[in-house]
Write a protein that binds this DNA or RNA. Structure first.
Length: 121
DNA sequence: AGAATGACAGGAA
DNA sequence: GTTCCTGCCATTC
């Protein structure tokens, strides 16, 4: 049989891969929209990640661990969603300062700070 | 088909 | 350090 053929490196749709990458972010850790996009082989599609995230109603999806590239929460400061995200992050021990994640001085890269040396970003 | 919009990113001021 | 402006992609009017 030729069943062993698995030509496509990406098993699912872009949406599937993106959601999977988001689910993979461990508790107490965060990642950026652009970083997620890169991890699933979609460089430059940060806004697509945002759209998928907002469109998904999946429960248990760690949407609150996804931040902007500068570590700032994407929602308008003070909005209900913003406050919700702040609460969830703090509950996981993420240090925030004015709705912005405090990043270790050593790593200026948000994703590297938390995801560690997984792969080059 | 062209214009506007959005849970973005990066560089300039 | 911050704010502002421009570039990008995909979707919706």
């Amino acid at each position: 049989m030729l069943t062993r053929i698995m030509p496509s490196p990406e098993p699912a749709t872009a949406e599937q891969r993106i959601l999977a990458a988001i689910r993979a972010v461990p508790q107490g850790q965060v990642a950026s929209y652009g970083g997620i996009a890169r991890r699933v082989g979609l460089p430059g599609r940060a806004r697509l990640v945002a759209r998928i995230l907002g469109g998904s109603d999946e429960t248990g999806l760690p949407w609150h661990r996804i931040l902007r590239s500068d570590g700032r929460i994407a929602f308008p400061a003070g909005s209900p969603q913003w406050q919700e995200q702040v609460c969830r992050l703090q509950a996981e021990g993420v240090q925030l300062r004015n709705g912005r994640v405090r990043i270790a001085a050593e790593t200026d890269n948000l994703d590297a700070a938390v995801w560690g040396p997984l792969d080059p970003l």
